[in-house]
């Protein structure tokens, strides 16, 4: 989707057009769900994704600037609110993704190494600090640029670059015992 199409959808959604709102939701639902899968327990991901879109609808008239940055800021706020409501910081449990990978490995016997590498990587992401995991999710898994990541995490671009270096270095350390798969 190019910028013009996105602007058209946003304008339509702001004026209450159901089709535009549905298209916007269908376009970004998988991205937000993916973000949630790496930020919260797997069984919460769908519910919190749903909550993100309800908040998007409520606040759409105030949206300015980069839409993905605004969207993921809301997503992160939903994550934080959920943790507060739960009364304690939850550990990220990404068992559902692991199960999905294992199922894919079962379906396709020719890619077990790749799938095993995904599982290792996912488990390593789960062991990162919260801000490192958020950066890895936004920058590499969601594919956002430094400007958007900087806006979402409310940090300077310089701080984002440092965090990125440390997150990748931490992952390297966590994957150190798996040289065959990663060549580290």
């Amino acid at each position: 989707m190019n910028d013009d199409e996105l602007m058209g959808l946003l304008e339509g959604a702001r004026s209450g057009e159901t089709e535009a709102l549905t298209a916007l939701c269908a376009r970004y639902y998988p991205k937000v769900l993916k973000y949630m899968r790496y930020r919260v327990a797997a069984d919460l991901a769908e519910d919190l994704t749903s909550e993100v879109f309800v908040r998007v609808l409520k606040n759409l008239n105030q949206q300015q600037g980069s839409f993905p940055a605004w969207l993921f800021r809301i997503a992160e706020r939903v994550v934080v609110d959920d943790r507060r409501a739960a009364g304690a910081k939850k550990r990220t449990v990404m068992t559902a993704m692991t199960e999905q990978y294992e199922a894919q490995a079962h379906d396709n016997a020719s890619v077990p190494d790749t799938v095993a590498a995904w599982i290792d990587l996912e488990q390593a992401i789960g062991k990162l600090s919260d801000d490192q995991r958020q950066l890895v999710t936004l920058k590499f898994i969601e594919g956002l640029g430094n400007d958007d990541v900087s806006a979402i995490m409310d940090r300077s671009p310089g701080a984002i670059r440092v965090l990125q270096f440390r997150a990748l270095s931490a992952l390297r350390g966590l994957l150190a015992g798996r040289e065959v798969r990663y060549g580290t």
């Binding site: 159901t18 709102l21 549905t22 939701c25 269908a26 639902y29 998988p30 769900l33 993916k34 899968r37 991901a45 769908e46 994704t49 749903s50 879109f53 309800v54 609808l57 559902a96 993704m97 999905q100 990978y101 894919q104 590498a117 995904w118 990587l121 996912e122 992401i125 890895v136 590499f140 898994i141 594919g143 990748l168 992952l171 390297r172 994957l175 990663y182 060549g183 580290t184």
Partner: peptide, 27 residues
């Protein structure tokens, strides 16, 4: 190398029920 592999992680399965539930809430 790790960054490249992170970018290749597969998307999660999107359940139609989850998407429909969200659209229902929006409606």
């Amino acid at each position: 190398d790790i960054a490249t592999r992170l970018e290749c992680l597969p998307d999660p399965n999107v359940s139609l029920a989850g998407l429909m539930k969200t659209l229902g809430r929006l409606g």
